[in-house]
Design a protein around this nucleic acid. Structure first.
Length: 551
RNA sequence: GGCCUUAUCGUCUAGUGGUUUAGGACGCCACUCUCUCACAGUGGUAACAUGGGUUCAAAUCCCAUUAAGGCCA
């Protein structure tokens, strides 16, 4: 029995003994790591670290049809990428045996047998049709659908007979009629009436001979396997999504039948989509891998999902994983679901991007430039890329369009110009593609600043080109360019520097928004700058003769 | 349909009976900076679901209603 029910969950939190906490995350490998699973993992992780306990990863792969090896890998890699390392899990031996449920069937057999022996569970041979008919009948008279208890008192002889006939069956728990009460660390007292549950199924007979040979007679259902594992793994606190609240009374009843002690329960609110429904696979971006691919940083995701349903009780919003460990408390977890606010994630991600050292940020951005087909790495010795740690032996990069060779330092300079403008790493390619293109493509009208005439723009660019062409290569530096160009812009425009700087920017970048055109000009180099201005002049007046462009 | 859970700005939230003309963040709007975009800064916009109680006093406690979500099929 649960004896220590406190009205106030916060009182229960005071009873936690540091060093003894064991929590777990138990995902099913039926798809990639879900952002909601990641958050549950985070809260469990924080709780375990806060109380100097253990965080365990268990893979619930009892659904053989849908469970896949690749999803186990995705879950493990995703958690590691986020920094949520587990103390015990599928790849660490640990004293409690394997961490895949499919490897634990012999344990489940033992516990099912125990229930059968103690007569707390029984065989049920009712057919699907029979059960369905009964359920429909109950629904039609407005009663909750539950099992009739028909097979509760089958004689042992009858059971033997059916078993020898290989009649399909399930194993049901003999549910006593009582109030099931538990203390939720977040919600307080929660009460269920067990009679509404009926004798629910805890396991089913395995029929296929090859599976039977491998796994034993019985396949446990979710709640049963969960209870057995949580007990065997000595889990002290079950911290999981609110969607499991209605599983809890079943698990409590199973524990009582098995005479196992109860863990503490904490049900955290769900992450919701924009329609305020549980975030599901159907929603646009749901897996941690998707966020990684889009260029979200792990520290941004951690920070953001921590704030989904939890707050520090202070106005502080920026938290690293280790500062979360310090601040985290179940008592500041929200009771209602939190809508996933992508815009705020973008803001946090931009913040962390701006915090990144330039060197590191460049390394993070390079794969996106490669992926976009703008550049390709040149490896030191081999023609073929090595499987791992490529960046360390990459000598330089080749711009795919034109074949020019550039250094990592050049890329660093490019990234520096765009660091403050990035919300996601994936945006880098679109923002900086003009650095890696031979020819820009933009409409003539884009060169227009306010109500300038094309002739005027032509004059500005032409005169700009003349000035620039006189600068020596060795003096081609932003500081010199700035002095020269800003002075010119000032003279020319009488206060409206846009008359000079806007056409220059469009000519160099082909975009209506970019970094400072003078910084861009420095990086592009004299040749490319003059070439692009020439192209702009040509676009404005295809027939015009260009005098400055002489090599 | 039954059971369970929840309810403060558009979103995430502070608030644990008087300190509240309800605070912060994202977003949005305006201004400053500025050739553009972004960054940064300043200001603004905007909420206690409804109805009853309890109390000198309710966003806060109780009840009902409503709505939303979850689970079971």
């Amino acid at each position: 029995m649960i004896t220590d029910i406190k009205e106030d969950p916060k009182e229960s939190l005071k009873l936690i003994i540091p060093g003894q906490v064991r929590v777990r995350i138990a995902p099913s490998p039926t798809g990639p790591l879900h952002i909601g699973t990641a958050r549950t993992a985070l809260f469990n992780y924080l709780f375990s670290k806060k109380y100097k306990g253990k965080f365990i990863l268990r893979i619930e792969d009892t659904d053989f049809e849908r469970s896949k090896e690749e999803w186990i890998r995705d879950i493990r890699e995703g958690l590691q990428w986020l920094g949520l390392s587990w103390d015990e899990g599928p790849d660490v031996g640990g004293p409690y045996g394997p961490y895949l449920q499919s490897k634990r069937f012999s344990i489940y057999q033992r516990y099912i047998k125990k229930l059968l022996d103690s007569k707390d569970a029984y065989y049920c041979f009712c057919s699907k049709e029979e059960l369905e008919a009964h359920r429909n009948y109950l629904m039609s008279i407005g009663k909750p659908p539950r099992y009739s208890g028909k097979c509760r008192n089958l004689s042992p002889e009858k059971v033997e007979e059916y078993l020898s006939q290989n009649k399909p069956y399930v194993i049901r728990l003999k549910v006593p009629e009582k109030k099931v009460v538990f203390q939720d660390l977040i919600r307080g007292k929660i009460e269920f009436d067990s009679s509404l549950l009926g004798d629910f199924v805890v396991a089913k007979g395995i029929e296929r001979p090859e599976l039977k040979e491998r796994y034993g007679d019985w396949a446990p259902l979710y709640n049963f396997a969960c209870v057995v594992d949580d007990f065997e793994m000595k889990i002290t606190h079950v911290i999981r999504g609110e969607d499991h609240i209605s599983n809890t009374p079943k698990q409590i009843l199973i524990r009582e039948a098995l005479e196992l002690p109860h863990p503490k329960y904490a049900h955290i609110p769900l992450i919701l989509n924009e329609n305020r429904a549980k975030l599901s696979k159907r929603d646009a971006v749901v897996s941690v891998g998707d966020y990684k691919a889009k260029g979200y940083l792990p520290e941004a995701i951690i920070n953001f999902i921590a704030l989904c349903g939890w707050n520090p009780g202070t106005p502080r919003e920026i938290f690293s994983l280790s500062s979360l460990v310090q601040e985290f408390s179940l008592s500041h977890i929200q009771k209602s679901g939190a809508v996933f606010n992508l815009r705020k994630l973008d803001w946090i991600n931009g913040f962390y991007i701006r915090q990144k050292p330039l060197e590191k940020l460049t390394e993070l951005c390079i794969p996106y430039l490669i992926n976009a087909g703008l550049i390709e790495p040149i490896f030191k010795e081999a023609q073929y890329p090595p499987a791992y740690g490529a960046s360390s032996i990459v000598q330089s990069y080749k711009i795919k369009d034109g074949g020019e060779i550039i250094s990592q330092n050049y890329l660093k300079a490019v990234i520096r110009l765009y660091k403050e403008r990035l919300k996601k790493l994936s945006e880098i390619a679109e923002l900086t593609d003009f650095f890696f293109k031979e020819k820009l493509n933009y409409p003539k009208d884009l060169l227009k600043w306010r109500d300038m005439e094309f002739q005027e723009i032509w004059d500005v660019l032409n005169s700009l080109a003349k000035t620039l062409s006189q600068i020596k290569e060795k003096d081609w530096q932003a500081s010199n360019l700035k002095e020269l160009l800003l002075k010119k812009a000032e003279e020319y425009s009488k206060g409206d520097r846009g008359k000079v700087l806007w056409p220059l920017r469009v000519a160099l970048t082909g975009k209506k928004a970019s970094a400072d055109p003078i910084d861009v000009a420095e990086l592009l180099g004299k040749d490319k700058v003059l070439k692009r201005i020439k192209e702009a002049l040509h676009l404005l007046k295809p027939e015009s003769k260009l005098t400055f462009w002489k090599k």
